[in-house]
């Protein structure tokens, strides 16, 4: 049991962060606006959660210009994907055990 709780990642203990990672697990990359629409959150809210994930280096931020418009893409890192997988496995075990 102790082991399972160890794998429950504090960083993912929030709906929006979990949501961002879910989207980035199945998509090569996602744009800020796509994430915003999918998760139904405000700009500021999303930005702060993205920052938190970036701090853990779970996601990568790629900034580029399309014409004159800035375009920001987010990608999950290898570390982020592994942490997310472990988190999900831990969730599954928790549900099965209780």
């Amino acid at each position: 049991m102790k082991n399972i709780i160890l794998n429950i990642n504090k960083v993912f203990d929030h709906r929006i962060r979990l949501g961002i990672m879910s989207v980035l697990m199945v998509n090569n990359h996602a744009e800020f606006n796509t994430l915003k629409e999918l998760l139904g959150v405000t700009d500021g809210n999303l930005a702060s959660h993205i920052k938190a994930l970036e701090k853990e280096s779970f996601i990568l931020i790629e900034k580029q210009f399309i014409g004159k418009k800035p375009n920001t893409k987010y990608k999950a890192t290898k570390k982020g994907k592994e942490a997310f997988k472990k988190h999900i496995e831990a969730l599954e075990k928790l549900i099965k055990n209780s």
Partner: peptide, 22 residues
């Protein structure tokens, strides 16, 4: 968090994965 919360989390993850990729 209770078991209900975790279940809700997982169904939300599934839903987001589907919605964002399909």
């Amino acid at each position: 968090m209770t078991q209900q919360d975790y279940l809700k989390d997982i169904s939300e993850i599934k839903d987001l994965m589907n919605k964002s990729s399909r």
